[in-house]
């Protein structure tokens, strides 16, 4: 049984079980309130699922890609929750949750702000039920996707405004079950911090 958290788009929190499926899921689409809502959403999801912290086997978290500030809220919450509970963190690429269950080639596209999008390309679902990511995640201007995504024309494009923590949790359960590698532990910002080195002090006179 996993607590699952994703804040790569809005805020989504779920409790899932490999056998029983989705026990609870709560979504908040607002992309500017992650830090405000995360606590109450975790607490409500656990209560609705009727699950105690001790019953969880880990915390699944969406590592992005996603805009920095919001993305970090989910990862910080997942890490701190897992640390307190003495359970492992299961990192998952957020786009994998969107592609979960897709049967045809799919290009997942999410908003990266500043007139860019995040993308990942999937060929379909493998025999274990996991989405097969063949390229990405990447970052591109929307009108450049055709150039940067290999075999762009072969995919159905899906622009996702939300990422479901329930789907993310189910992906994590399958990774767990089939001993498949999790995502890396680094947040997928895909952008450097917005800063430029100064060329030296400016004159004032």
């Amino acid at each position: 049984m996993l607590l699952a958290i994703d804040t790569s788009a809005g805020t989504s929190v779920a409790v899932v079980d490999r056998d029983a499926g989705v026990l609870a899921e709560i979504n908040e689409a607002d992309t500017r309130r992650h830090a405000e809502v995360i606590g109450t959403m975790i607490s409500t999801a656990l209560r609705e699922a009727g699950v105690a912290v001790a019953d969880l086997s880990g915390v699944a978290v969406g590592m992005g890609p996603g805009p920095f500030t919001g993305l970090r809220v989910g990862i910080a919450a997942a890490r701190a929750f897992a640390w307190g509970a003495g359970k492992p963190v299961v990192p998952v690429v957020s786009h994998d949750a969107v592609a979960f269950g897709a049967t045809e080639p799919l290009l997942v596209v999410t908003d990266a702000r500043r007139r860019e999008v995040y993308w990942s390309a999937y060929s379909g679902t493998d025999e274990q039920g996991l989405p097969v990511r063949v390229s990405g995640p990447g970052l591109a201007p929307p009108d450049a996707l055709g150039e940067v995504v290999p075999g762009y024309d072969g995919y159905r494009r899906f622009d996702a405004a939300e990422v479901s923590a329930a789907s993310l949790g189910l992906v994590a359960e399958l990774l767990y079950l089939h001993r498949r590698p999790f995502a890396g532990s680094e947040a997928l910002y895909l952008r450097s911090p917005d800063v430029t080195l100064s060329s030296g002090p400016k004159r004032v006179s």
Partner: peptide, 20 residues
């Protein structure tokens, strides 16, 4: 700094729930 504060706030809330 907002973005910096949010890391601590999110972590503290989650920890508060996980250790009750």
């Amino acid at each position: 700094l907002s973005g910096a504060l949010m890391v601590g706030v999110a972590a503290a809330k989650a920890l508060s729930i996980s250790i009750d």
